[in-house]
Structures are given as structure tokens and as C-alpha cells.
Computed example of a mutant assay.
Amino acid sequence: MDVADLTPAQARERFRSGERKPTAGWCRGWTQANLIAVPAALRYDLLLFAHHNPQACPVLDVGEPGAHATALFGGDLRTDLPGYRLYRDGKPVADLDRVTEEWREDLVPFLIGCSFTFERALLAAGVPVRHLELGTNVPMYVTDVACASAGSLSGPLVVSMRPVPEALVKTAAEVSGRYPRVHGAPVHVGDPAAIGIGDLARPDFGDAVEVREGEVPVFWACGVTPQAAIMASGVEFAIGHLPGHMAILDVRDDDYRVED
């Protein structure tokens, strides 16, 4: 079966059984989300960080301490994503297939909006999405744009990039802007150096894609930003998704679309 035709439950079963792939293009019409789970002592700091940086950190759902499911995610957050990243003292120390043993009783899971949610809408409007064409992960970059700090958390903005034909940049901004709870409109268009990105061919996360003649690099805020804050702030313990390997929720992309 084409992965685009899977239901969220079917996709989660495949991940639970060991399939490990980026989730761009999976489960057509179903919302995907970033995962970050932090100790309960940090949950209010993270909520405040998200409040201060809503475009980068749009919170879709939050679980109780120790929970491994939420209202929007009917699977098991410890096993039903295709990849995880473990942090200790702000450093990524392991990429794991599952985190059943590492999941602590004080961990509070946050599900953060993902720009994959509006990619089908971009395609429907005639805007190409290069990483979907290639079957690769979206390229993501750490910028030199500082997020607003909150409590013990601070860090840089992370962005995802999609090359867009110059004539369609306005369309891409309008289409994605209808999804404000999953990053919304772009945060930057054009020169990557203006936001501290030195080389588009060397993303910090994901896979590089070509920006062709007549195209412009367009950058959206990315839900990996909380993981950048975990690293910058030296958080003693956290679990995130492996960038691009998302939690697939039991809600529809259209639930996050606002009308003109």
C-alpha cells in the first residue's frame, strides 16, 4: 500500500514493527506533529517558551506527566514514531528506534505543529515540494535568529526550507498562512545568509535539496526549535522525535486550516 493511503493507526503499527523512514508524504490528510518530552519541572518553562514563540512552537497537545499517549495521539509515544533522539545535559546522546525503557514517569510530552500539514495544500495550489518529489527528508537549518527566552529555556530558531519558483512565492505564503497553528506563513524568503545559514547544501537536520534556476529558497519556522532550545539550555534530560520522523495524529490537516 502507498504510504500516503495509510491511516494513522496503520502507520503507527508499521513504526512499532520497526519501519524507520521520514514521514513526509505519509497518511494523506492526517496531521503530523513534532514530539518533545521534558521533565515535569520544566513543563511550564516549555509552555511559556512556546507562548513567546508561537510560530516556531505551536502547541497542539500536551500529556500528563508519565503519559505515553495524548488526546490527539492514540498510539504509544514510546514506540509509534519512526525515530527518536535522546538528550542528556543538552547533548544528543543517542538516536533510538523506541524509548520504552528511557521514558521516565516525570516526562511531559508536548506535540508541536509541523509544516508537513500544509504540504498537500501547497501541491494543490501548484507549488512544488521538492523533498516530496525526491522522497527525502525536508532540509532544516539552525539560524542565528534568537527565540524569546522563557524561564530556563532559550535558543535559536530552526527553519525548514522549500525551493519555490519565484512566481509562486506569494501563493506559497498565502496557502501556508491559512495554517497558523502549524507554523503558518514563511518567516524568511531569499538570502539564507540573512538568517545565519551559511550553506544550503549542508542542513543541520534532514536532507539537502537543489534550489534550481528561477527558484527562491523559502523558509518556514520549524518544530525542531524546542530541541534546539534543549541543547542551548543544557536541559538534563529530554526525548524528542528524530527530525522529520513525526508523530502522526488522529486529526485532519483541514482541522488546522482557517478560512480567508
Rank of each mutant, 00 (worst) to 15 (best):
M1Y: 08
D5L: 15
D5V: 06
P8M: 06
R14I: 04
G18C: 10
R20Q: 13
A33Y: 03
N34F: 07
A40E: 15
F49L: 08
Q55E: 14
A56F: 05
V59Y: 09
A67M: 06
T70G: 09
T70W: 11
A71Y: 11
L72W: 10
F73G: 09
F73P: 09
G74R: 14
R88M: 10
G90Y: 10
A94S: 12
E101K: 07
R104I: 00
V108M: 01
C114H: 03
S115H: 04
F118G: 03
G126A: 07
V129H: 02
H131P: 05
E133P: 02
E133A: 13
N137L: 09
P139N: 11
M140P: 09
V142Q: 09
C147A: 15
A148E: 15
S152K: 12
S160D: 11
A173E: 15
E174W: 09
E174D: 14
R178E: 14
P180H: 10
R181N: 13
G190I: 01
D191W: 04
A193C: 05
A201P: 02
R202S: 13
F205T: 00
G206F: 01
D207W: 01
E210A: 15
E213R: 13
E215N: 10
E215C: 10
E215L: 06
P217E: 08
W220T: 12
T225S: 08
P226V: 12
I230G: 08
G234F: 02
E236A: 11
E236Y: 05
P243M: 00
P243K: 00
L249W: 00
L249G: 00
D250L: 00
E259A: 06
